[in-house]
Computed example of a mutant assay.
Amino acid sequence: MSEAPTLHGLPFPAGLLYAPAHNLWLREEPDGSVTLGLCAYGCALYGEIFAFTAKRAGLHIDAGRSFGVVEFAKAASSARSPLAGELVEGNPRVLQQPALINRDCYGAGWLVRIRPDDWPAARGDFVSGAEALEAFAEQMRLDNFDPEAPGVQALRWKT
């Protein structure tokens, strides 16, 4: 298996879609739902995550609205959905083990599953491959992200 493309040492696996403005990855599931998770860049920005609480299953989430709360180093932030749909489930494992988000953000540390209102229309809003790397490079520039900052160095993924 080939290594994931990286940007400043942070991996962005191929085969996923990305919402750079939300620091999320998306994966289409066979049942029509879409799994969302915090990407490596989001994890680097937040640092160690202490808790994630998803909103209740069955709730309709509008694009740009919160699907849950991420708690990290003396702060909390709303995790905002890049697409509209029904919240199918929050990841029960991250409720018990929030460190999974930092340790395995693209696997066991996923956040929620949403059944999109109109996936064919929404899908075009997301990027993958080289386009995703370019979009994250621009997002990092806008965020004044310093990949050499001591806190970021500690969070670098080994690829």
Results as ranks from 00 to 15, higher is better:
52 F>H: 12
62 D>A: 14
68 G>Q: 06
57 A>Q: 14
61 I>M: 06
70 V>M: 14
77 S>Q: 12
52 F>G: 10
72 F>G: 03
72 F>M: 07
52 F>D: 11
67 F>C: 15
65 R>S: 04
77 S>I: 14
75 A>V: 10
73 A>N: 02
56 R>C: 08
51 A>L: 08
50 F>R: 10
59 L>D: 01
57 A>R: 13
64 G>D: 07
59 L>A: 03
67 F>Q: 09
64 G>P: 03
71 E>I: 06
56 R>H: 11
75 A>Q: 14
52 F>V: 14
50 F>T: 15
65 R>V: 01
54 A>R: 02
63 A>T: 08
52 F>R: 13
53 T>N: 00
64 G>L: 08
58 G>V: 08
56 R>V: 15
57 A>F: 08
56 R>E: 15
78 S>H: 12
78 S>P: 02
60 H>C: 01
77 S>L: 11
73 A>W: 00
77 S>H: 09
60 H>M: 02
53 T>L: 00
77 S>D: 11
78 S>E: 15
63 A>C: 06
64 G>R: 05
78 S>N: 14
71 E>D: 07
58 G>M: 10
66 S>H: 02
53 T>C: 00
70 V>E: 09
74 K>V: 02
53 T>M: 00
50 F>D: 09
52 F>L: 07
49 I>Q: 01
60 H>T: 03
66 S>G: 03
52 F>K: 13
74 K>W: 03
72 F>H: 13
62 D>Q: 14
63 A>E: 14
51 A>T: 14
53 T>F: 00
73 A>F: 00
78 S>D: 15
66 S>F: 02
64 G>I: 05
76 A>P: 05
58 G>N: 11
53 T>H: 00
49 I>C: 02
69 V>Y: 08
51 A>N: 12
56 R>F: 07
53 T>S: 00
60 H>Y: 02
68 G>R: 07
59 L>I: 05
71 E>H: 03
68 G>Y: 05
72 F>T: 06
69 V>D: 11
60 H>P: 00
59 L>M: 09
51 A>C: 04
71 E>W: 03
60 H>D: 02
53 T>E: 01
69 V>G: 04
55 K>F: 08
